[in-house]
């Protein structure tokens, strides 16, 4: 696993690049650990309070530990009318968690998202940003089985 110090150092020269650094940190850790946030604040010369304010503003950034695979259910209107609620219920039942939670084995985190721009085949689920199209409740077990 790449060290967060190195990750941050590699983005340091981009003006205002703290969000880029957060993306890079999340790629390794799936969230922004406290120490990494503090280091980012230092590197980009902003207060820790501000670095924290930035990290908590964006839905795709998290300062809390998350699972290896982040499942996001799109609930925007086009996916909503295509049955997103049913898919979400099935996801919750299969994973045994509610939205916002992580499975006890640390594998899956379930989140809601607004439109991910793949509305040609609704409803859409993304797993680590990879879209899965036209998801029906009965497809859920098969989809989850692919992620080990």
């Amino acid at each position: 696993m790449a060290n967060y110090m190195d990750i941050i150092a590699s983005c340091k020269d981009k003006p205002g690049g703290i969000i880029e650094a957060y993306h890079a940190i999340q790629k390794e850790y799936n969230y922004i650990p406290q120490e990494a946030l503090k280091e980012a604040a230092r590197a980009f010369k902003v207060s820790e309070a501000q670095a924290f304010g930035v990290a908590t503003f964006y839905s795709y950034l998290s300062v809390e530990k998350r699972g290896k695979y982040i499942i996001r259910m799109c609930e925007s209107a086009p996916c909503h009318v295509a049955g997103a609620d049913e898919v979400l219920k099935t996801l919750e039942a299969h994973l045994g968690i509610k939205v916002g939670e992580t499975t006890s084995d640390g594998k899956f985190t379930l989140e809601l998202t607004e439109c991910v721009g793949q509305c040609q085949a609704t409803p859409v689920v993304t797993i680590n940003s990879e879209p899965i199209f036209g998801v029906k409740p009965e497809m859920v077990p098969e989809i989850l089985a692919k992620f080990k």
Binding site: Q34, L37, A41, S47, E48, A49, F52, G53, F57
Partner: peptide
Amino acid sequence: DEITGARAINVMDRGHHAKIATSF
């Protein structure tokens, strides 16, 4: 930020849930 320069607090989260907070 501007008078004291301590930069201890900021806004966290967004929308209706936004609030004033220190880091973490």
